[in-house]
Design a protein around this nucleic acid. Structure first.
Lengths: 115, 115
DNA sequence: CTAATCTGCAACCTGGAGGTTGCACAATAT
DNA sequence: ATATTGTGCAACCTCCAGGTTGCAGATTAG
């Protein structure tokens, strides 16, 4: 079971679903886009440039944190969030596996037709 | 703006959020896993091997169809669903871009420290 | 022809997602 | 010392996602 292979795809895959769901919201996607740019940012910082309330942003950040996409730490009175790449890499592997599966299916079909 | 570059990441990205959300459910992920294996499958076929109702499965398939991950066509009294790879490829590109962005950030930070 | 199968549509229920307001408190500016 | 700023927590609201049951209509099997 190589690390490139999402173990038992589709059966015991609660983790990927959690991460996909975390990214399945435009607001959270925007937050990720800002955070993957580098510097950690505070809640109020991330709230600027959004029409939502600070509390709403906080909830979204909690969802991202719960999925592991982001990690949180305090500095003084600021609550800072930093991007964490591992779950994104896991999803890339997952999607690669799905594509690969599909390509194999196409190849099988083609060889069947050509026979 | 290369095709590898998800245009204006985070700003006008409603489409990716839709696709991510469609995959953000364990049941739907299982459906995708079965469908990307090749042959189109009918609703009742996909319902076997799930503890859910046919109607529930139908709703999940509609969500996937709405995201473009799957396409539907009828054959006799069967409603068949076939995997459609484009949205998955779009997500791969999206995640690649995020990772790339993060790698650039790390590289900038490193060069700053080494200076 | 008749029975079994596959599907679509509609009504309905329940929990939680996503958003808000309000308040209390810690940390920093001035 | 005081005002401002950044957070956390809790209560509350609304709406929809995810599930179910029930029924009627096609289509195919026997």
């Amino acid at each position: 079971m190589s690390p490139k292979n999402p173990s038992r795809i589709g059966s015991q895959s609660r983790a990927p679903a959690l991460i996909f769901a975390a990214l399945g919201d435009a607001t959270r996607l925007r937050l990720v886009a800002r955070l993957c740019g580098g510097e950690p940012r505070s809640i109020s910082d991330l709230t600027r440039g959004s029409r939502l309330t600070r509390q709403a942003i906080t909830k979204h950040l909690s969802v991202l944190q719960n999925a592991g996409v982001v990690c949180r730490f305090r500095s003084g009175r600021h609550s800072l969030f930093k991007f964490h790449p591992q779950p994104i890499d896991a999803l890339r592997d997952y999607l690669d596996f799905v594509s690969e599966q599909w390509d194999h299916a196409l190849a099988r079909l083609k060889s069947l037709v050509e026979r």
